[in-house]
């Protein structure tokens, strides 16, 4: 979330063949790629998938550095666990470092596998969110059979997400102009913590009260428990079919090639 939330939204507003695909198709393709990446245990397979995703990014005209930055920023927690693997997985010892720390072959392979999987899955999500506005993904989900309540909650949350992000930015700027810094040792630690807690309370109450207002105004416009989201009818075009078939053929052929040559 260090890449501005509005930048993600502005990337998704660009125009390209990939952007113009139906939201459902993009969602299905992303899910297929992620599930296949989690399923496979072969590293070269993952690299081919990554290559395919990179080609898609190129075709979609999404800024490369932006996509890379996003993937790198999310990497740490998972990357940390992957980097640890060579030292903790038992197996054939490759090197022995001082303090009896060993690097094993199995661990190294497993670490690379985890890292490759992670990168493929992250690239897929980054691509999806860069070529599809958030709201459209939720609408597509609803069309594909997401429960009504869930789709409603998600779409409302997304509407207010940007608002509260702006709110947070404003509060941060206001604090900055008053030289507030969470690491400033000149103020007591508890005092700083209290200021942050108050900011959190501010956001909590504002979102709660906004929620009440939204609820009442929806109610006065005839909202009831049975209300559903408006769905624009959209037809799946030839391009959409072409694209999904292409991806499935790719996954299938990778799997077949792997089956006949690798094992």
């Amino acid at each position: 979330m260090h890449v501005g939330i509005s930048q993600i939204e502005s990337e998704s507003g660009k125009k390209s063949i990939i952007h113009s695909l139906d939201g459902r198709i993009k969602l299905i393709i992303t899910l297929c790629i992620i599930i296949y990446a989690v399923y496979t245990t072969k590293i070269p397979v993952l690299w081919v998938m990554e290559l395919y995703l990179l080609v898609l990014i190129l075709v979609s005209k999404v800024s490369f550095s932006y996509a890379l930055k996003r993937v790198l920023l999310i990497l740490p927690f998972g990357g940390f666990i992957a980097l640890f693997q060579p030292f903790i997985k038992p197996g054939v010892v490759l090197y022995t470092l001082p303090l009896d720390i060993t690097i094993t072959y199995e661990g190294t392979i497993f670490g690379i596998l985890l890292l490759s999987r992670l990168i493929v899955c992250l690239t897929a999500v980054v691509l999806l969110s860069s070529v599809t506005p958030i709201q459209e993904i939720v609408n597509s989900g609803r069309r594909m059979g997401f429960p009504r309540e869930l789709a409603l909650i998600l779409s409302l949350t997304i509407r207010y997400l940007f608002m509260f992000y702006d709110e947070l930015e404003r509060i941060r700027n206001a604090q900055k102009t008053r030289c507030f810094d969470i690491w400033n040792k000149k103020t007591s630690y508890m005092w700083r913590l209290r200021q942050i807690a108050y900011t959190i309370v501010m956001l909590f109450l504002r979102s709660y009260e906004q929620g009440e207002t939204v609820y009442f105004s929806m109610l006065s416009r005839g909202y009831s428990g049975e209300s559903d989201m408006y769905q624009e009818k959209k037809k799946i075009s030839l391009n959409d079919y072409l694209f999904i078939v292409l991806t499935l053929i790719l996954i299938l052929s990778i799997e077949l090639i792997r089956h006949f040559y690798f094992i």
């Binding site: 509260f164 992000y165 969470i182 959190i200 609820y215 909202y223």
Partner: peptide, 24 residues
């Protein structure tokens, strides 16, 4: 009261922003 679901949805947006706050 199911209709109050919108309230939770907006609250979720607030929690989303709250999670982005760094705490020393």
């Amino acid at each position: 009261d199911e209709r109050k679901v919108p309230l939770l949805a907006v609250l979720a947006a607030g929690i989303f922003a709250i999670q982005a706050m760094n705490i020393p």
